[in-house]
Design a protein around this nucleic acid. Sequence first.
DNA 1: AATGAATGAGGGTTCATTCAT
DNA 2: CATGAATGAACCCTCATTCAT
Lengths: 198, 198, 198, 198
Amino acid sequence: MATIDPAKAERRRQIVTAAKQVFADAGYHATSITAIIERAQIARGTFYLYFASKAAVFDSILDQAMTDLRARIRRVEVEPGAPPPQQQLREQVIATLEYFIRDRPLAVLLLAAERTPDAEAAERLDQFFGEVRGMIARALETGMELGLVRKCHPELVAAAMLGAIRGIIDLVVAQRDPPPVEELVGELMMVALRGVLA
Amino acid sequence: MATIDPAKAERRRQIVTAAKQVFADAGYHATSITAIIERAQIARGTFYLYFASKAAVFDSILDQAMTDLRARIRRVEVEPGAPPPQQQLREQVIATLEYFIRDRPLAVLLLAAERTPDAEAAERLDQFFGEVRGMIARALETGMELGLVRKCHPELVAAAMLGAIRGIIDLVVAQRDPPPVEELVGELMMVALRGVLA
Amino acid sequence: MATIDPAKAERRRQIVTAAKQVFADAGYHATSITAIIERAQIARGTFYLYFASKAAVFDSILDQAMTDLRARIRRVEVEPGAPPPQQQLREQVIATLEYFIRDRPLAVLLLAAERTPDAEAAERLDQFFGEVRGMIARALETGMELGLVRKCHPELVAAAMLGAIRGIIDLVVAQRDPPPVEELVGELMMVALRGVLA
Amino acid sequence: MATIDPAKAERRRQIVTAAKQVFADAGYHATSITAIIERAQIARGTFYLYFASKAAVFDSILDQAMTDLRARIRRVEVEPGAPPPQQQLREQVIATLEYFIRDRPLAVLLLAAERTPDAEAAERLDQFFGEVRGMIARALETGMELGLVRKCHPELVAAAMLGAIRGIIDLVVAQRDPPPVEELVGELMMVALRGVLA
DNA sequence: AATGAATGAGGGTTCATTCAT
DNA sequence: CATGAATGAACCCTCATTCAT
């Protein structure tokens, strides 16, 4: 009984999927339980069998996304024998962009989630983005120590770079036929590393 | 009828100011008419004398912001006798950042515009950011023609650069004591122009 | 403005009256706001303009009743020159019974209110009945000191006497044409004072 | 089919016991089927195998209580050779009080029966209390005929006396350590028979 | 022009009951 | 028989909007 019932897990997924779409369409507040259950094709009560509240689904989606993304993003290693840092970076950015491109509603939801339902979730989200920014800043610092990166204000530059990634995702998510990930990553890294001057 | 009654205009401003603060504090959906009229010190019915709905004030605020920003951002001129392009750019970015820093409620509101109340407003917002992106892309193209900018995909790079600006604004708006604008702009332009490599 | 608007007061009374009837008919929990507003012929929102919640009306009714009753019940005075104790008692019991007979829904509601919505209200009610029982007990003690009342356990006897009053009210409230108050009080006091033995 | 399956009967008892406790704790409306089945350690559907509805269990409990009490209360016999009426009375009151004291949940439930779930049950309850009052009234009439009881209005006095018993039970049920039944009955009968005058 | 009492659709949530397994 | 996932009517409450004053 404590084992996971596949049917229940499937139901849960069904609800999460529906909720993700509706949240992405309308935002957290404008999303009604009615809209979710209609999309999920379930009865009102069934929703509450799987989630305690509207906020609970939202949190669940957010947490899942953050977990997934954390698994894709890790500290760049500079030990001897490790792959070249630029390659490591490139792979992570590719993985991240692919994650967003694959699940468009989730991307919309996550990027527009600044204003989340409960303060707790908002804090978790802030913390997550803070983490990512911190990792970028750390990577920049390491790069500076190694003489690979020019002298700069790491936090500020990290904010700009995170924003740049976000900008690309925004663009891609808004388009019907996004350019191939390789091209996106190529441009992104070129700008980040060398800027736009000739 | 179409003549501007100064008293009415003042009342309108009073409402807009109140609404801006409340929207920024709580977000569109969490903001109640009650909160707005309490802050504006007016009666319930009076609000509807000046605005047709809650969405209407929100739209009005958004439009005003977009108008203000449009006035700050203009095509970079390359005619002989014009100031050097980099200086034009720097001045515009400074003006933009200052605008956001000066009116924090408006910045929060514009950037975190969650899901906008009506589809129409959302579209106007999208269109505005699209315009800005277009101007950046156009500037990049001009730069490429002049041999100042390396070969790149202008739309993509423009998206990244707009995102970078946004990233900086996000960071700044979240902080109590933001760094001086000069420093922000310095870092931002260095990254954009030269990247981070040593 | 701080003066009481008669129209609003009337509305409030209208709601209280409706609520009292419905509560009496169905009990607190089984009473729906819908039932109250239908009886009061008002819109849903109007109810909440006058009362913060279902519990609030209920509490208001209870408090009003307790205030009214407290005004009718007072310590029996035994100072020289005061009316004879039995007459004082009789007058108070008459006043109390008349109060219940006049407002039948309130009587039903108050007597069946053991299980009230919130613990706080239940406590206030308990306290009220405790007060009344205490006054009866005190009166018995005074009577014992004066040699008017035989030796007995005052709290126990007070509980029995309060119960007896309640029993009479129950009977009266259930009947269409209750006997005249004088008769009720006569029998009640005879039993209480002399019992039923010949 | 109509034969009693001991296993089923046991299950039924198990549910009734659980329900009685939960109803007494929380009252009819505040009691959820969930609470009952958790206490009874059965599945949701099983409950409905034994009872048609929540009201049905409640009714069943009420009926059982009334049956039990009816068995304890009987007409006072005045035939030659019967025990003295006062002794008969005392024994019945003792039995009644003991019944309530022994099964406190049931007492709470029966006395505080707020508004009963269905009109039918409410009527049965009214009828039951009516019966008891009738028996007391009959006893009083018999007493009057025999010259044991002074002239009085039997129904009114019966209501007062039933109320007095209820008052005592209320008091006792609310207390943790009730006084011994003998004391309760002693006071109760003294008041009823002789009143409180010295 | 200004007011604020009144409105009622719609919100999130609960829970008695059913029924396929 | 027993189970518990599923159901949906009904609950209390909020709040954008209207309109008589």
